[in-house]
Computed example of a mutant assay.
Amino acid sequence: MEGQSLLAEAVAAGRHCGARVRSDGLTATAPGIVSGDLTVPARGEWRGTIEVLPIVDHEESQPAYPRDAPLHDAVPVKRLRDWQEASPTVELPGELRGELLGGVLDRSVQDLGSPRIRTGGGNEFIAAGAPWFMTLFGRDSLLTAWMALPIDQQLAPSTLRALAALQGRKVNPATEEEPGRILHEVRRNNWRR
């Protein structure tokens, strides 16, 4: 326990990994155990935040949604807002647009913008789906970027660059890597090639 945070570290497959758990009011009660006292009056409310920050190769990730900052100031929220504002809009005469069509168009832009992920190299792509597939999927991410061309012309080349950075270079039967082959799915440790 370091101040108001708990640090858990290990070495796995030759890599230093871990996590820092932070929250106001937590204390270490035993090695690896964090607890806190909380009293919520009848019909009362309590709100709290627990941050879990991954550590890979001694580099601690910073929270995307810092607990001490308003949600609307978080970087992912700003990126989504900027993307929505830059997306084209469809202007239709009153009855053609209607609430239903307008809602579908607005929701489509939001749904495409929400699962966007930025790599360490600055390339963006749309993840295959939340919550289990928030990662780069070769075919899925590429087809989504292609179909989104009317909304965002930068997404397709960015997705191609992200995939090219992970393109196969050697024959590896264990991972099915082959020279020139585009991966199916990125999972743990693939970004560090």
Score class of each variant (00 low, 15 high):
G32S: 11
V21P: 07
A19R: 00
P150E: 00
P150H: 01
F125V: 00
S158W: 00
A28W: 04
M1Y: 14
V34R: 00
Q167S: 08
E91Q: 06
R81S: 12
E91F: 01
T175E: 06
L149F: 00
L112A: 08
A145V: 05
L6Q: 12
L6D: 10
R43V: 11
F125K: 02
D37I: 01
E51H: 07
P179I: 03
W146N: 06
E60Q: 15
A69T: 11
L143A: 02
L80V: 00
I151C: 03
I33M: 08
L101R: 15
D106P: 05
L136G: 01
E60D: 01
P70F: 07
A28Q: 13
A164C: 05
W46P: 02
E51F: 00
A130C: 03
F133G: 10
G121P: 05
F125E: 04
P150G: 05
I33N: 02
R118I: 08
I151G: 00
G168L: 01
L100V: 12
K78M: 10
S23H: 11
H58W: 11
R15H: 15
G94R: 03
G168C: 04
T119A: 03
D111Q: 14
M147D: 08
A28Y: 04
E51M: 05
F133W: 12
L183S: 10
R139T: 14
K170D: 04
K170N: 04
